[in-house]
């Protein structure tokens, strides 16, 4: 495999060659990520232009939302600083998860169809980990800058006491939301084993993802229930941010602080099980 062969010519050495059980070879994954990053960094100007333009694209939408809040004073009981924090968190957490999963699983159906995935099955490495780490995507620079900028803008105007407890909750919430993103993309990617075509499901994902940018309380009750349960987009940013800035969370009430942190790991576990089940089915079909 590419990673192992190339390892000899780089600072990565013994650990990569050493036999290790598939799935836990961290040195190999680190090496794969470095390879991918180095490839992308060969075209630095192109990468920076991609960051700037994508940031510009997102800024257009965020500016529209700012115009609404500037004119009306609030949205569903959320002021601009609160909304900025919500949007920033949503963008930043999404980007962490997407770096490891989005472009990787977007091409999953083509990989399965064209037999590229079967090549992975004969390699001594966990296929999910290989796809995730060898495809790590650096295009999210503007997401991080915009997300952090919006969160700082919002947090500066909000009466938040940034003690160790809140800091820890903030980081754990980001991690949970990032896991949620990764888990959802993994599930959609796994559909490729069952449906044959899964790319259009990403379109459906983004339709719902865009809803989760706004305070969930503005939607009708049935949709709120869906976003809190079967399609848990509410935990992407609305629940964790509401908990942090002390806003009430409909339907969840007192369970919100725990669920804000637990949603990501729970869905990640479900995604892992789903991936395995779909993979088993794929192998069954393949004989």
């Amino acid at each position: 495999m590419v990673g192992r062969e190339d390892a000899t010519s780089d600072s990565m050495t013994g650990e990569v060659r050493a036999p290790a059980p598939p799935g836990i070879n961290l040195a190999l994954y680190w090496h794969l990520m470095r390879l991918r990053a180095r490839t992308r960094l060969q075209y630095r100007a192109s990468l920076v232009l991609a960051w700037i333009s994508q940031g510009f694209g997102y800024a257009g939408t965020f500016a529209s939302i700012w115009v609404i809040l500037n004119r009306f004073g609030g949205l569903g009981g959320w002021s601009w600083p609160e909304m900025a924090f919500l949007l920033g968190f949503h963008t930043f957490a999404y980007a962490i998860g997407a770096v490891f999963t989005f472009t990787q699983f977007r091409g999953m159906d083509a990989m399965v169809r064209e037999g590229e995935f079967d090549m992975l099955l004969v390699r001594p490495v966990n296929p999910w980990s290989f796809i995730v780490f060898s495809g790590v995507d650096l295009q999210y620079g503007s997401h991080f800058v915009l997300g952090a900028g919006l969160m700082i803008t919002g947090a500066a105007a909000l009466p938040l006491a940034w003690d160790a407890g809140l800091m820890l909750r903030f980081l754990a919430s980001l991690l949970s939301a990032a896991l949620l993103t990764g888990a959802m993309f993994t599930i959609i990617g796994a559909f490729a084993f069952v449906l044959g075509r899964s790319r259009y499901v990403f379109g459906l994902y983004f339709d719902l993802w865009e809803l989760s940018r706004y305070p969930i309380g503005i939607y009708t009750a049935p949709l709120q229930i869906i976003l809190f349960t079967v399609l848990p987009f509410a935990y992407m940013s609305f629940v964790p941010v509401s908990v942090m800035i002390g806003k009430p969370v409909p339907l969840l009430g007192g369970a919100a602080p725990v669920l804000a942190l637990a949603a990501g790991p729970i869905l990640a576990l479900m995604a892992a099980l789903f991936w395995r089940a779909c993979l088993r089915r794929h192998q069954d079909i393949g004989g």
Binding site: S46, S53, G57, T61, I65, N70
Partner: peptide
């Protein structure tokens, strides 16, 4: 030669300035 970037520039300009989400009546 960076169609991807041009695509995002266009998307950003259109999102805000077309009045697609927010009509220009509400703009500053």
């Amino acid at each position: 030669l960076e169609a991807h970037s041009l695509e995002w520039f266009m998307r950003g300009l259109t999102a805000l300035l077309s009045g697609g989400l927010v009509p220009l009546w509400f703009f500053p």
